[in-house]
Design a binder for these strands. Sequence first.
DNA 1: CACGATTTGGGAAACCATTCACAAGCGCGT
DNA 2: ACGCGCTTGTGAATGGTTTCCCAAATCGTG
Lengths: 224, 224
Amino acid sequence: MTVQREAAAGNGARVVPDATVARLAVYLRVLTGLGEDATTTVSSEELAAATGVNSAKLRKDLSFLGSYGIRGVGYDVATLAEQISRVLGLTVHRNVALVGVGNLGQALAGYAGFASRGFRIAALIDADPGRVGTTVHGVTVRDLTDLEHVVADEKITIAVLTTPAPVAQEVCDRLVAAGVTSILNFAPVVLSVPHHVDVRKVDLAAELQILSFHENRKNGALIV
Amino acid sequence: MTVQREAAAGNGARVVPDATVARLAVYLRVLTGLGEDATTTVSSEELAAATGVNSAKLRKDLSFLGSYGIRGVGYDVATLAEQISRVLGLTVHRNVALVGVGNLGQALAGYAGFASRGFRIAALIDADPGRVGTTVHGVTVRDLTDLEHVVADEKITIAVLTTPAPVAQEVCDRLVAAGVTSILNFAPVVLSVPHHVDVRKVDLAAELQILSFHENRKNGALIV
DNA sequence: CACGATTTGGGAAACCATTCACAAGCGCGT
DNA sequence: ACGCGCTTGTGAATGGTTTCCCAAATCGTG
């Protein structure tokens, strides 16, 4: 989690806590669903129930965006969704590169959730000559040697890294040198990056291990 | 994050904080790597550097396991790995069921990181008749209607949920009724479960949105 | 227009996690 | 046997997050 809170500029600077940012995405998804049901307003209590948080926390989270609720009524679904989108920077379109078109890479390339939330997988990159040139979910796989060109041409600032662990750091360095400033890392490796680059790591095996810990606790959890 | 700290039993009860548990998995991976390099001891400073945390935090984390370091020397790699495995409950073998054998499900079924860390995908379950009966990464896909039998027969307590969102809650309910007590949820849905069941959610689109937020901040982040 | 029911926004307290700082313990060299 | 350098383990301080709680704002009704 190489995400430091940039000590807010000279203005009245509203700083949104990291914990809040992580939840905004969830609120937004639920709000989008409500919008499709033609629901026009929602109270913090209702939205909190739908997103699995407590309503005080939800209200505090939303208060960081500004004051968009109406006392005695609730929040306007459309307005709130719009404000969250704004804060999350989803109003501008973002092109994403995916490096490492293996099993997981291919699955992610086709993941509907990305496209439907405004992220376009604009480039697929792989080192395997057998894969280069093939088309996966409508996008042609480019060779790893072209990485720098692809990143520049497609104006890419966000990359998804699904390479094998041994090459992850090297590929990461090249992405950063080419101008990428955010990386979603699925390789089981701790990446080191300059301070201006954000990395988020998704560690699938670690997730299961955390569940295993809780399983262990539940079954007696004998303390030796 | 439906993971409440079960108010430790009557004994001297050492409670490992959630934040620490999440990092233990990372330490363990690095330790395993060191073990293969025939490194026998490691200092908190070295291990901290390799895992991207600060050394004080690492030492505090490890202190929850007990006192396995040697002052002036460091930690024995093998011993430490063993202790972490014990606390994470990785000493017992755990069978995992995966429900929803779509793109993502297939990729996860073949994910080497699961197998190499002691999690065996013991069952694949899907509702699509076209997929039932096929073999994916050596495991035969079973029909959703057999879910209860499969869970019971394979003594499964952990499930990975990669179904489409609309059926996730329903499948979840059946898993829980069948005896599953931990769920790793990839469906973009907030699951509701009884208090004795732990759910961890991996929200891929949310991860990109969080990166998007930080991108936004970096580029001026005009405050309107 | 006043009142009661409702719901937000946010100050303050409680809780949890991280970082600091250093005493205590260990091994090695002399 | 002793001192020195190194490293752990942990209290105390700090910083961040969640929860509590209630004044202020809004709506609908009489």
